[in-house]
Write a protein that binds this DNA or RNA. Structure first.
Lengths: 216, 216
DNA sequence: GTCTATAGGTGGATAGAC
DNA sequence: GTCTATCCACCTATAGAC
């Protein structure tokens, strides 16, 4: 399964790593998304893969390096998904719906956004991972800002404040909904919350794909 | 300093613990709110207090017990703050403003909500702590639901969906804004995001305390 | 590339003196 | 209540054989 929902968004020349390294990253990613960076060890990964801890160090010399690679691959994968959305000829509301679907897919997988998870542990992370998190959130914020601006111009989206400010609200709302849903609710409750976030922007349901109609 | 912003909301008969236990909880709380449950150790607390690890075990036999007490005290403190808001004669919009101020205070203290932080590590926490988190989020959701329902009846708040659903959106948005702000932005950016969350409900700025005027 | 073996450190936790 | 001393499990990481 891909790093995100499962859709392979173009072959996407991922960071050139061996097949073994990819398998390690897959397991580490799942552990990081469910238990956090400080919540798993090389022993956990080794056990799941049926290898020894020492062999992991051959591919990733340190846990810090593994963590850095984890974020880099996630960002690449997520960025690819955003590119795919941009390449499809669709309206700003439809773009936002697809954006939310990315998060929906993660939740249905019983995980939460890798970077949202790691953001909680920010103060304990090595500097390269901290930089990676900032870059990931900026990537999201930039993409959302562009979509919001386009939507405002075409009157297909309605919101107060600047596109940049609103992008931050949306990003926070989705990350937070995942965070809370994992302990308090579930994937279905996340979906409901996410739909309300879309509604607030004037994005209708799928039965209204042009997004012109607002409810409330 | 109190568990929250700093306002002492009534003497609030906190869980009956010794002065030493209180000091331990204070330090542990700060560490948990900045580094997470898996991001600090008894050694960290002992160092900050100038005592030995062994003496900590006298007050809290296990880290799991310390974590449980941490959440219990936080919930008690937070619940007290909500009671204080309810006892003051103010409108639903004003109640929400004060609710957001609680979170603002936490952020200005360079922390994030204890339970939002621990929610990320949910899968790694002992069962009593998991139950505590659920209870905290339910407390928030119930309180917000009641305020939203009251606001809808008096037409001082406007929102789509049920009060319960909207409460979840608000809670997630605030928790997520804190989460993201700590790595990507700062307390000031959290404040901006939180104000937009209020605006979306038709809550105006302080210059308009009755909350009747909505913008955009 | 993967293994065995181990180093060196830190985690939570306990026994028993004071 | 707090200390010293210690236990043992686990952590990341390395050396060197295969």
């Amino acid at each position: 399964m891909s790093a995100l929902s499962g859709k392979k968004a173009a072959p996407a020349r991922q960071t050139p790593v061996s097949e073994s390294a990819r398998a390690i990253l897959d397991v580490a990613e799942e552990l990081a998304q469910t238990r956090g960076y400080n919540g798993f060890s090389y022993a956990d990964i080794a056990a799941k893969l049926g290898v020894t801890k020492a062999s992991l160090h051959y591919h990733f010399a340190s846990k810090a390096e593994l963590g850095r690679a984890l974020i880099a691959r996630y960002q690449e994968s997520f960025g690819g998904a955003l590119d795919t959305i941009d390449q499809a000829p669709c309206t700003p509301p439809e773009k936002l719906r697809r954006y939310v679907e990315l998060y929906d897919g993660v939740m249905r997988n019983d995980r939460m956004c890798l970077c949202g998870m790691l953001a909680a542990e920010y103060a304990t992370l090595p500097a390269p991972m901290q930089k990676g998190l900032k870059a990931f959130f900026q990537l999201n914020q930039r993409w959302l800002s562009a979509v919001l601006e386009e939507g405002r111009k075409s009157a297909s989206l309605a919101f107060s404040g600047t596109p940049g400010e609103r992008a931050e609200v949306i990003l926070g709302a989705l990350e937070g909904a995942m965070l809370v849903a994992r302990s308090y609710g579930n994937a279905a409750r996340f979906h409901v919350a996410a739909q309300h976030v879309l509604e607030d922007l004037g994005v209708g349901r799928k039965s209204n794909p042009d997004g012109k109609g607002k409810r409330k």
